[in-house]
Structures are given as structure tokens and as C-alpha cells.
């Protein structure tokens, strides 16, 4: 007998959420969604959640199970049991709950809309035929196009937990689907917009989105691809790009990081406010003898590293 501990919330009845436990024998090979349906259909008809296709393609049934977002229809319930034979279900994070496991997706869709989520081709479209796109070009947008908009990545994104302004992994993956599309003519404008605050450089590299994504979309990998294209397109006038370039140049020069230079170069030499903001931490560290050595040492055999940079045209 398994216990399903479910976070219940119905503001029509009471303002505060609470946890309710249901006991259920998990039928053989039942998915988590099958179990939720058993609970709804045989124990408590008021239990509320979204669902539709039950084959991991519509993206309706994402919930948090034992603290992490997943698609309920995609997972065998038995695999989710904790040490106490319990599965804890909660609504997705980073969105407002409406009732039980149903959350308000409005901010999620607003952000999808912000990235101009449609092809912006040039006018040269062959009227009677398809545009050509090689299998290699297709492969650049293959993964991003598998996104089912389930919101699992959005739910567990660490940046979104502290900053509503971040576009979030799903919208950025959607953006990469067009940044990487050989048929799109607005690549430069797109990466420019995506380099603004709230864009790719606000991603904190936590990898949660890759972990929660039920499809091969892997949003963080897509975010990195946008960064690469932005740097290639010369969109350098922001802290993220400056940081990447400073880091890159440091490794190029010495094979390792010059930690004294990176903060300054990331802020930009003429960004007085930004530079001032570095002072407190810098001063504290200096006083505690934590500041990196003033004379920066290269690694041994740095010439070979330089050679590799050169060979790759970097």
C-alpha cells in the first residue's frame, strides 16, 4: 500500500493549502497519472490537476513529485516511491497555484511570447516548393523543437526562484529553435534581444532544466548555443558576454584564470557603477588575504594551450 501525500488548495473553501494523504495499491505498471486518476475517480473526485494525452506529448500533467517537477504520465509510480513508500505531490513551482495541482501558466506563456516565437524568414521564399534545409541544419533545431511546453523546467529553475524577470528555460529553448534555424533571417536581432537582462546571461548554470525536461529539449544546452551565436555575432556589450570573453582571453594567455581581471573586465572598464559594486567584496577579500596573487602565473607548457587556440582559429 502506497501513500500519496498531496498538497491540496482550494481558495473557495479555505485560503491556506494543506497536505492530505491517500492510500492506494499501485496497480502493476501504473504511471503516476494512472494513480492520480484512481484517487480522483475512486477516493476524492475533487482532486484537481491537468491531464490529456497520457503519452508525454501534450505537456498537461507536469507536477512536482517528491520536490521535483516531472510529467505524471511518463513515470512509473513504483519508481517514485520514497523510503516510506510515499509519493509527495505538489503543484509546479515558480507559478501561482489555482487549485490543488493546477497552476497559473500566464507568466510562462507571456515569456514564450516575448521571444518572438515564430519564424521570421527573409522574403525569398520559393513559392511552389519547400525551402532547402540540410539534415545538418535540421539537427541544430531538432532538439529544441521537441519541447512540449509542460513547464517542468520553468518550475524548478533556480534563477526564476529569485528573479521573475528571467525569461526562463522553456522560452529560451524556444528562442534557440529560431536562432538556430537556417531559414530565419533575424538571428542577429534575436541574439541581441536575448542578451538583454532577463535573457541568456541570467541563466545560473544549475542544470535543473536539463534534469527536469521530459523530452530531449535540454534547455540549458540550448541556452549555451544561443550564447555562442551571440558571441559570434559580436553582441559583446553586456556583462555576460564580457565575462565570457575575459575568461576566454585569460585562458588563452596563461592557460588558467586571472581572477583579478575577470570581475573588472566583466563590468567593463568604463562602467563606474559596476566597478564600484565590486569594491566591498574585493576589499574584504584583500584584507583576509583571500585576494588572488597580484602576479598571475601561467600553467606549465602554456605554449601548447596557445597552439590549440591558434589551431582552432580562436
Amino acid at each position: 500500500m502506497a501513500t500519496f501525500k498531496i498538497k491540496r488548495f482550494n481558495p473557495e473553501k479555505q485560503p491556506q493549502p494543506y497536505y492530505e494523504e491517500f492510500q492506494l495499491d499501485i496497480p502493476p505498471a501504473a504511471t503516476l497519472l494512472d494513480c492520480m486518476n484512481q484517487i480522483k475517480w475512486t477516493l476524492d473526485g475533487s482532486l484537481t490537476y491537468r491531464m490529456s494525452c497520457r503519452s508525454a506529448i501534450c505537456g498537461s500533467c507536469a507536477v512536482k513529485s517528491n520536490g521535483h517537477a516531472l510529467l505524471a504520465c511518463q513515470r512509473q509510480a513504483e519508481h517514485l516511491l520514497d523510503d516510506n513508500d510515499t509519493i509527495t505531490l505538489e503543484p509546479l513551482g515558480n507559478m501561482q497555484p489555482i487549485k490543488d495541482l493546477v497552476v497559473d501558466f500566464t507568466p510562462f506563456w507571456d515569456k514564450i511570447n516575448q521571444v518572438k516565437p515564430y519564424l521570421q524568414p527573409d522574403d525569398e521564399v520559393p513559392p511552389q516548393k519547400e525551402r532547402r534545409q540540410s539534415p545538418q541544419e535540421f539537427s541544430l533545431i531538432d532538439d529544441a523543437s521537441t519541447c512540449i511546453m509542460c513547464g517542468a523546467c520553468y518550475s524548478d529553475c533556480n534563477t526564476l526562484e529569485v528573479d521573475d524577470n528571467f525569461l526562463g528555460p522553456a522560452a529560451l529553448a524556444k528562442a534557440q529553435r529560431f536562432v538556430g534555424d537556417s531559414r530565419d533571417a533575424q538571428t542577429h536581432a534575436r541574439v541581441q534581444a536575448l542578451s538583454e537582462p532577463g535573457g541568456v546571461w541570467d541563466c545560473t548554470h544549475c542544470g535543473e532544466c536539463v534534469e527536469r525536461c521530459p523530452k530531449p529539449t535540454r534547455p540549458f544546452d540550448r541556452i549555451k548555443e544561443i550564447m555562442t551565436v551571440a558571441l559570434e555575432h559580436g553582441v559583446h556589450d553586456n556583462n555576460g558576454a564580457r565575462h565570457a570573453l575575459s575568461f576566454f582571453n585569460s585562458v588563452k594567455r596563461s592557460g588558467n584564470l586571472n581572477e583579478n581581471r575577470i570581475p573588472v573586465e566583466s563590468m567593463g572598464f568604463f562602467n563606474i557603477r559596476g566597478l564600484l559594486s565590486l569594491l566591498p567584496a574585493g576589499l574584504r577579500m584583500f584584507l583576509k588575504r583571500k585576494a588572488p596573487p597580484v602576479i598571475h602565473h601561467s600553467i606549465d607548457e602554456v605554449d601548447d594551450v596557445k597552439r590549440i587556440f591558434k589551431e582552432l582559429g580562436q
Binding site: 528573479d163 541563466c203 555576460g240
Partner: peptide, 14 residues
């Protein structure tokens, strides 16, 4: 969870 270090230069508050 994440400590936030990767974006301390880009989005310090977050």
C-alpha cells in the same frame, strides 16, 4: 541548489 555564482557579474541581486 545553485549558489548563484555564475551570474554574480550579470545579475548580482539574483
Amino acid at each position: 541548489k545553485c549558489c548563484g555564482f555564475p551570474i554574480v557579474m550579470m545579475n548580482k541581486t539574483a
